[in-house]
């Protein structure tokens, strides 16, 4: 497999306050915008980031204050990879957590967060250690549009 060069990278960390959910979406949006994504592609990424950050706030840190780390990379082939990491409680059974409709949250949680990430992104990988934290890696290729102004 050909390895593509990373052409841009960002790191972001913020505390797990729920009003930072919109901050995380806006920041990722601004970073990804340099690839000139369609509004649909951008919405897919924003929604997936929102789901992952919400998981950190509502589940990993369970409304306590901890730090959420986001790393995003853009590759020369138009692929974006986003890593969202917490040092929270961890997930005991990742496969179960990723099942649609499974939730440990209350009746107003849909249990569809991971299902949305898997559907809206090209690839989602979850690594979790109980008591240590969780890392969600998501990737999506932004389709290059012709006729767009380069630089």
């Amino acid at each position: 497999m050909k390895k593509y060069e990373c052409i841009n990278e960002m790191d972001l960390s913020f505390i797990s306050k729920s009003n930072n959910e919109s901050f995380a979406r806006a920041t990722i949006s601004a970073f990804v915008s340099q690839l000139d994504p369609t509004i649909d592609e951008l919405t897919d990424i924003k929604t997936s980031v929102s789901e992952a950050v919400t998981n950190c706030i509502a589940h990993a840190y369970n409304e306590q204050i901890g730090i959420i780390y986001i790393n995003a990379k853009i590759f020369s082939n138009g692929k974006i990879s986003i890593k969202i990491r917490d040092k929270g409680v961890g997930i005991d059974d990742v496969d179960q957590a990723m099942e649609p409709l499974f939730t440990t949250g209350g009746s107003d949680r849909s249990g569809l967060g991971f299902a949305v990430m898997k559907s809206f992104m090209d690839r989602v990988k979850v690594k979790s250690y109980v008591g240590k934290g969780t890392t969600v890696l998501m990737e999506k290729s932004i389709i290059r549009r012709s006729n767009k102004n380069e630089k």
């Binding site: 979406r25 919405t43 924003k46 929604t47 929102s50 789901e51 919400t54 107003d108 949680r109 849909s110 569809l112 967060g113 949305v116």
Partner: peptide
């Protein structure tokens, strides 16, 4: 904008 919190 809405994520799955809106579904909930």
């Amino acid at each position: 904008f809405m994520d799955t919190s809106g579904i909930g």
